[in-house]
Design a protein around this nucleic acid. Structure first.
Lengths: 141, 141
DNA sequence: GTGATTGCAAAAGGTTTGCAGGGAC
DNA sequence: GTCCCTGCAAACCTTTTGCAATCAC
């Protein structure tokens, strides 16, 4: 963090720690909840500003999933998010998938150099397809 | 539109027309501006509701790009959006690219059936990489 | 004629910003 | 010591919702 020219504060350290230790993605609010145990007074605006600082330094990537607000995670994300229309869960397939998609894109992007890749797919997960499900929509969009 | 069970109103017809004729994607506000010439009183809330109706009918897809609010376009999008960090333009590569990425995903999604695919990549377009550019940010994130 | 749809207006988020005090370097 | 960062509060913007009149079917 120092190395990236980001000034280190307790708030930023905790936020960063949550992202790195879980390796998961969170909304700003979600991060505040997690860090709240250690820094009770942590403000949402501080979370946003810290995340912005980390993002500018290339330590954090931000993306948007359908219903939810912005989500943030450590390091360039680049892995696909599969949103199931049946159960609304968000699945993370094998990282290999992301790599292949990145390759497919690179190969034919006409000189565009990809730095960050965000993939979001909607569909039906294996469980919902196999058995019963709740709110599946019309099939082929 | 009738065939999809969507009630046809002037508002919806114009909105749909903008999306189809341009084949481009717009924000709700952008759509209102375009349609405004024909339907001066068109409300933003109506735009949102119309788009939702069209989306539910499978005629429109909605996605989210980083800075911008929701964007809508006709028919299942499924094509990658390449956002250039140099010039901020949004490029649409060869549809073939989308197909390949879809295949890459399908092949290894562990039984997840993909219905709609949204791809957003940030990077540098060929023009900005090659020559001079305007508002390039820091290069390697 | 009936029920969905529109315009209007207000609410409900999520995200950003101004400011003064305090902290990192 | 200086400048950046934080908390607090308010603003901003997009998106959603309630209601009565209107329109499509």
């Amino acid at each position: 963090m120092h190395e990236r020219g980001v000034r280190v504060t307790p708030q930023r350290a905790h936020i960063w720690r949550v992202l790195v230790e879980t390796g998961d993605h969170f909304t700003a609010e979600g991060i505040r909840e997690r860090v709240g145990g250690f820094l009770p007074g942590l403000e949402l605006s501080t979370v946003y500003r810290s995340l912005e600082a980390l993002r500018a330094a290339g330590l954090v990537s931000e993306s948007r999933l359908p219903g939810e607000p912005k989500v943030f995670e450590a390091r360039p994300a680049s892995h696909p998010h599969l949103v199931c229309d049946g159960c609304d869960r968000i699945l993370h397939p094998d990282p290999e998938v992301g790599r292949r998609m990145m390759e497919a894109l690179d190969a034919d992007a006409g000189g565009f150099v990809v730095r960050e890749l965000h993939v979001m797919a909607r569909g039906i997960c294996a469980e919902c397809a196999g058995g019963g499900e709740g709110a599946a929509g019309s099939s082929m969009a």
